[in-house]
């Protein structure tokens, strides 16, 4: 039981993520989480503004069901399959984040300094969440996929466009974590 309650090592987690992709392919579907954002736009009536959203979204409800499951899975994992042990981060990372104003790094899944109610009430905190969300939503659709569709499914099927997209993910991520985050915090 301890093995389940403790955080899982990377060599267990990686193959299980591949299993998720394999199961969806077995059910004749493709692993791709960002597509749901497009589906939600279509359901909300975005087809009135762009043909990009004119498609039969009812064919995509299976993927929204995966999303609903993922939310439930997150709840189950935290409430029934965890023993409260924090994330075992590199001590160097913890000190570095402390200098940027992040306390108790790794104790929770996301920093309170960005995501708790106090942070959301501040103009800076709210702006960061909105800007981040816009970048994720705009970028994934522009690149036609995210970590699941390109980094996992795309690279597993040895597709060059996915490799280009993943290189893009890293260019953006490296710029944000190394150059922009230190300016924000």
């Amino acid at each position: 039981m301890e093995y389940i309650l403790n955080p899982w090592p990377w060599y267990v987690s990686g193959p299980l993520i591949a299993l998720v992709m394999a199961l969806l392919l077995y059910f004749e579907k493709t692993f791709g989480m960002s597509s749901n954002l497009k589906t939600l736009c279509a359901i909300g009536g975005a087809g009135k503004f762009s043909n990009f959203f004119k498609f039969n979204w009812k064919e995509k409800t299976w993927n929204l069901t995966v999303v609903l499951g993922a939310i439930i899975g997150g709840y189950i994992a935290v409430h029934f399959l965890s023993n409260g042990s924090g994330t075992d981060l590199n001590p160097e990372t913890v000190i570095e984040l402390q200098h940027m104003g992040f306390e108790n790094s790794g104790a929770t899944l996301v920093p309170d300094e960005m995501f708790n109610f106090e942070a959301v009430k501040s103009l800076k905190g709210l702006s960061l969440l909105i800007i981040g969300g816009l970048l994720v939503g705009f970028g994934t659709r522009y690149a036609d996929g995210c970590t699941s569709g390109h980094a996992i499914a795309g690279l597993s099927s040895l597709q060059k466009p996915s490799l280009v997209a993943v290189i893009g993910f890293f260019v953006g991520g490296l710029i944000m974590a190394n150059l922009i985050l230190p300016l924000i915090f």
């Binding site: 960061l128 969440l129 800007i131 981040g132 969300g133 816009l134 970048l135 994720v136 939503g137 705009f138 970028g139 994934t140 659709r141 522009y142 690149a143 036609d144 995210c146 970590t147 390109h150 466009p161 996915s162 280009v164 997209a165 993943v166 290189i167 893009g168 993910f169 890293f170 260019v171 953006g172 991520g173 490296l174 710029i175 944000m176 974590a177 922009i180 985050l181």
Partner: peptide, 16 residues
């Protein structure tokens, strides 16, 4: 589209 879109997403990924 893959390199530009990917980079934009990467910025958001590391921020959020």
């Amino acid at each position: 589209k893959y390199i530009i879109g990917g980079t934009i997403f990467g910025l958001g990924w590391a921020l959020i």
